[in-house]
Computed example of a mutant assay.
Amino acid sequence: MSDNGMKPMLILLAIVAFFIGMDSLVVSPLIPDIAKATAVPMERGGWLITSYALFYGLTAPFFGPISDKFGRKQMIVTGMIIFSIGTFCTGLSQDFNTILGFRALTGLSGAMVMPSIFALIGDKVPYNMRGTAMGMIMGAMVGSTVLGVPIGAFLTSVGNWQWTFYGIGVLAMLVAFIIMGVLPKTPPTNEIPVSAPVAMVSGIKTAFTNTSVFFALLSTFLWTVSLQGIFSYIGVYYKENFDFSVEKIGMVIFLAGAGSIIGNVIGGKLADQIGKKAVVSIATIIAAIGVVSFTLLTEHVIFAMIVHVLWSTSIGFGQSSLTALISELSPKVRGTVMALNSSAMYMGMMFASAGASWLLVGGQTFLAIGIMCAIASFLVLPIIHFLIIENSIMRKRSY
């Protein structure tokens, strides 16, 4: 595919990633209104995010092999249609358990779409441009969460919480039809003449015959822990130490998210120039130092905010490079690998949140969480250098 043909494809895929990312956290500011409308305690509102993440993580390994067997476009289109329906129906529901079911359905559809997008980039984009491409997609996902929270809050303030889900659902269906007509048909990469469950087992087995894949997934798990351990309690950090209001916390998260977007884009481009492992190495060191420094600055609000933004930028800086590196490890089952990578990400998210909660409940300070995150970040460094071997043949062909 030529550079001219590749750019429209990447823009379209970035738009898809924007919608998937936005839907995952847009529910956050809507929780009080949804809880009131469905007559449930506000504390249960967090389940709306958990159900999305849980079903995304659990089902991603199933859809990866199907993507390898039937093609990326088919999975992306099908996933976006289901995503649209699930999101729209979330707005129609008045029963909390029914809403949870539709949130689970949208998480499942996200698991169909995003690994297929990452695999498609690995299929179509030359190695020396893949970091930039991954940076665009990851930047769109991060940007969607930054914009999704204020967009959801605004729509609720001028209308009601259902408007948010109606809007995302209708626009997502429009995007699905655009993909159907514009995105070129993608042939299967691993034609296994068996049923989907057997294909899943076979594909995962094939992926793990490459030991680099296992350590790559471990790197993604650790990288997510290094981010989510603190991020999951970032609101509590600012409230307890600086008595920030919800609006102030939202503004800080917005600035940090903007830094992460910039980090993803710059890190992706730099990875194509100096190498993906080099960029991830730089990012791990900065992220580890940054997260510990952040947890120590409990009496210096300006410095804490500056370090928070720099730390978030470093996370984005390494994320696109790590994703691009993983996408090349086992090309024949790339969809499977990227699906497992998504699962590793969400498992890391759950582990980090649980670990941080356990530390705080046990009377530990935020410094303990920062140390946990820093250790996770530093562990990525030896893994990518000594335990992950890049596919040198495909790398040479891509130039």
Rank of each mutant, 00 (worst) to 15 (best):
G5C: 06
M9T: 11
L10H: 04
A17P: 02
M22K: 01
P32G: 13
K36I: 09
M42G: 06
E43A: 14
E43M: 15
R44I: 03
R44S: 10
T50K: 12
S51Y: 14
F55T: 14
P61V: 12
D68N: 00
F70R: 15
G71N: 00
Q74K: 15
V77R: 06
I81M: 10
I81H: 01
I82A: 10
F83A: 03
I85S: 10
G91R: 09
L105F: 08
M112G: 02
P115Q: 02
D123H: 14
M129C: 07
G139T: 01
G148M: 12
G152A: 02
S157E: 05
S157N: 11
S157L: 13
S157M: 12
W163N: 12
G167H: 00
L171K: 05
A172D: 01
M180I: 04
G181E: 08
L183T: 08
P184A: 01
K185H: 10
K185E: 15
P188H: 09
N190L: 12
V194Y: 08
V194S: 11
S195D: 15
K205C: 13
T211S: 14
F221P: 08
T224Y: 04
G229F: 02
F231V: 02
S232G: 07
Y233I: 09
Y233E: 07
I234S: 12
V236A: 13
Y237E: 07
E240Q: 09
F244L: 05
V246E: 15
F254Q: 11
F254C: 02
A256L: 04
I266P: 03
V280Y: 08
I285Y: 07
I289N: 00
V292G: 01
V292E: 03
F294E: 09
T295E: 06
V301R: 10
M305C: 10
G318I: 00
P331M: 06
P331Q: 12
P331R: 00
R334A: 01
R334P: 04
N341V: 01
M350Q: 09
M350F: 15
M350D: 07
A352V: 14
S357L: 04
T365E: 04
C373Y: 05
F378K: 08
L379E: 11
P382D: 08
N391H: 12
S392E: 12
K396W: 13
R397W: 02
R397L: 15
